[in-house]
Design a protein around this nucleic acid. Structure first.
Length: 308
DNA sequence: TTCAATGTTTAGAC
DNA sequence: GGTCTAAACATTGA
């Protein structure tokens, strides 16, 4: 899954393809991947068949007005005061297909295609929801690990639905000023800087990859405690958050080669990684082998020479 | 066979 | 409440 830059890329692509399309029908192959209303997504094992029926029934005939993003959550704005919230988690993926092209976004590309390889039949083994539009095109929602979900809500529930609450500011938004960042950090003085950056209730949308990359640029090790950072350190982190995220969006994300256009082109950001996924490989700046540190079940990668 | 993987949530310990 | 850890969710692939 995608972090903020990948989700943003997916949102842009889907918006282009899906805007003003009318849903002719919806099919749900895995009931636990869909839910309704303000209820939480925990305990999704037993989604009543009735809910699935309602989900399908409500989608029929809706027009997709736009696709938006909050943190790593996608929001499909539909006609009839409805919206679909979609979280892709680690391996969620959308594939849009019409007569002319197939567009893959997110997830693990190996699931379906390598560039240049013949297209695989859809829906596939891991296709959980299919939207069919009146023009004959399709949107497939795939997820190998099934951590993701689609949740149909009324527009008036958007303000109260649990999934949209408790997010910190968007790191590319106007409200994310240096003062705001400082006060966020002051809430977690004992926290490790990488974990604070990845905490979506503090700053929205930064995950494992980009927290590593941001801290590399800022020359700060991931496990450093917030309280031990100087003002200069904090300024560097603040500076490189938008720097790294914007660069990744410009490269169309694809942190781990998970984005393929119909022509087989790839998101390019993976080429620009300095530390993520480069354990043991030489630092691109100084040649020192990249090391890792385990924190809360996540791996942080850093250069022991460049980062202090 | 064992481990780690782009994320989030929850439970338990101190 | 703060903070930290592990586990759960499920599958793949190295």
């Amino acid at each position: 899954m995608p972090e903020l830059p990948e989700v943003q890329t997916i949102v842009s692509e889907l918006n282009r393809k899906l805007k003003n399309k009318t849903i002719k029908s919806a099919a749900v192959n895995e009931p636990k991947m869909v839910s309704l209303g303000p209820r939480t997504v925990s305990n999704r094992r037993s989604v009543p068949a009735r809910d699935v029926k309602v989900f399908i029934g409500l989608l029929k005939g809706r027009i997709i007005l736009s696709v938006k993003r909050r943190a790593k959550l996608l929001i499909f704005d539909l006609s009839g005061q409805l919206a679909i919230l979609v979280h892709l988690k680690m391996t969620g993926q959308f594939i849009f297909e019409d007569k002319r092209l197939r567009l893959l976004t997110g997830g693990k590309y190996k699931m379906f295609n390598n560039p240049g390889a013949p297209l695989v039949q859809l829906p596939g083994k891991h296709t959980h929801v299919v939207l069919t539009f009146t023009d004959g095109s399709h949107l497939y929602f795939n997820d190998i690990r099934k951590f993701g979900y689609m949740k149909l809500v009324r527009e008036d529930e958007l303000g109260s639905v649990k999934e949209l609450q408790g997010y910190g500011p968007e790191p590319l938004g106007k409200k994310f000023t240096f003062n705001v960042f400082q006060s966020i950090l002051s809430q977690r003085p004992k926290g490790k800087i990488k974990q604070v950056l990845m905490d979506s209730s503090l700053v929205a949308g930064i995950g494992n990859i980009y927290s590593d990359e941001i801290l590399f640029h800022a020359k700060i090790r991931p496990a450093r405690a917030v309280a031990g950072l100087t003002e200069k350190d904090i300024k560097a982190v603040y500076k490189y958050i938008p720097f790294v995220l914007k660069k990744a969006i410009a490269a169309k994300g694809s942190s781990v080669g998970d984005f393929v256009r119909s022509d087989g082109s790839w998101g390019q950001m993976g080429k620009f990684h300095f530390v993520y996924g480069r354990k043991g490989q030489p630092c691109k700046i100084c040649g020192t082998p990249i090391e890792t540190v385990r924190m809360n079940g996540r791996t942080g990668s850093y250069c022991p020479s460049c980062q202090k």
